[in-house]
């Protein structure tokens, strides 16, 4: 049992010099944190209606202005860029940004557009003009393509795409105009809290054999959806010899997926779920290390025994979960 009390803000109650935060910090921000005693810079704000105590500042996201004072409207970490103050909620739905890689599911086929559930505030839109159709990147879309839309992507299909633009009301438009994007198959979908996926240089990762006969591909969607699929070898990826540009919209899983490949997929997804259960942000190196770690200890999967998982977390991430 606990009670909620209003704690004075920007107090030096934190024994930890850097309060827990889920966002990646800019180097200059970290330098500022180290260099100053003023904890106003970043503070976990659990007083919802607390004055941030600064004059002539601008309220950003997660704040509103009342009586010339910036007041936070969500519980989270304060981020400050010069005069702009914003509060990032500890937990929230996916907030899209242009260029984000997302995984979505088609919910509706409309006239020259698909509606995609991308775990955001509203359904995303995928225009027929912003997909690659079989037959070449430069191909013009004609009327017969609009009639065949359901053959390319039907309701329930999963796809990986990039956020292209915002509409006026905040809805997003996606595009799949890259050979890496498009329909997903040969794998399984995981749904995680979006805050655990950080913005990385690449969100397509490959865990090479011995993780399954052909390795395992992992796509980390920034909207919290993660796709774990049978790996594609070097030659079969886009640009390679065996890349199958015509099979992009195929609904069929590859027949040569042996059980060992599926075991590897399950193992990797169990590892991801293990990290997610303990709020560990995911990255490619973490997954590679984790798989190497369990492989060294002879865990073939798909299950990761509890004690093994605890040791994995303790050794790789430094999280002690034995007390939980």
């Amino acid at each position: 049992m606990f009670t909620i009390s209003q704690r004075p803000l920007s107090s030096a109650l934190w024994s930890d010099p850097v309060p827990p935060s889920t966002h990646r910090r800019h180097p200059s921000e970290l330098a500022a944190l180290r260099g100053t005693d003023d904890r106003m810079d970043v503070d976990v704000d659990d007083a919802d209606h607390a004055d941030l105590g600064v004059g002539s500042s601008l309220g950003g996201h997660g704040t509103y202005v009342e009586n010339d004072q910036v007041v936070s409207s969500v519980t989270g970490t304060i981020e400050r860029v010069n005069k702009l103050i914003s509060v990032k909620p500890l937990k929230s739905r996916y907030i899209p940004e242009v260029g984000d890689l997302v995984i979505g599911r088609i919910v509706e086929v409309g006239s020259s557009r698909w509606r995609v559930d991308a775990n955001a505030r509203q359904d995303a839109v995928l225009m027929l003009s912003s997909v690659n159709l079989p037959g070449g990147v430069q191909r013009r879309k004609i009327e017969s393509d609009a009639l065949k839309m359901r053959e390319f992507l039907a309701e329930g299909d999963l796809l990986v795409a990039e956020v292209q633009a915002f509409f006026g009301d905040g809805a997003i438009s996606l595009h799949t105009r890259s050979l890496r994007y498009g329909k997903l198959r040969n794998g399984l979908l995981l749904s995680l809290p979006p805050r655990l996926i950080r913005r990385l240089k690449s969100h397509f990762h490959h865990i090479p054999p011995p993780c399954g006969p052909s390795g395992v591909d992992v796509i980390l969607g920034l909207n919290g959806l993660v796709w774990v699929a049978a790996g594609t070898g070097e030659d079969r990826r886009e640009g390679g010899e065996g890349f199958d540009a015509e099979g992009v919209y195929s609904d069929k899983n590859d027949v040569r997926n042996p059980p060992s490949s599926r075991t590897a997929i399950s193992l990797v997804s169990n590892l991801i779920n293990l990290f997610a259960a303990h709020n560990v942000p995911l990255s490619d190196t973490l997954l590679l290390d984790a798989h190497a770690w369990v492989h060294k200890r002879g865990v073939i999967g798909p299950d990761v025994p509890r004690d093994v998982g605890e040791r994995l977390l303790a050794e790789l991430v430094g999280v002690d979960v034995s007390a939980d």
Binding site: D48, H49, Y64, V74, K91, S92, R93
Partner: peptide, 11 residues
């Protein structure tokens, strides 16, 4: 609502 990260004017 606070847990969901939804903006509120106050508790």
């Amino acid at each position: 609502l606070i847990d969901a990260g939804i903006s509120l004017l106050d508790y």
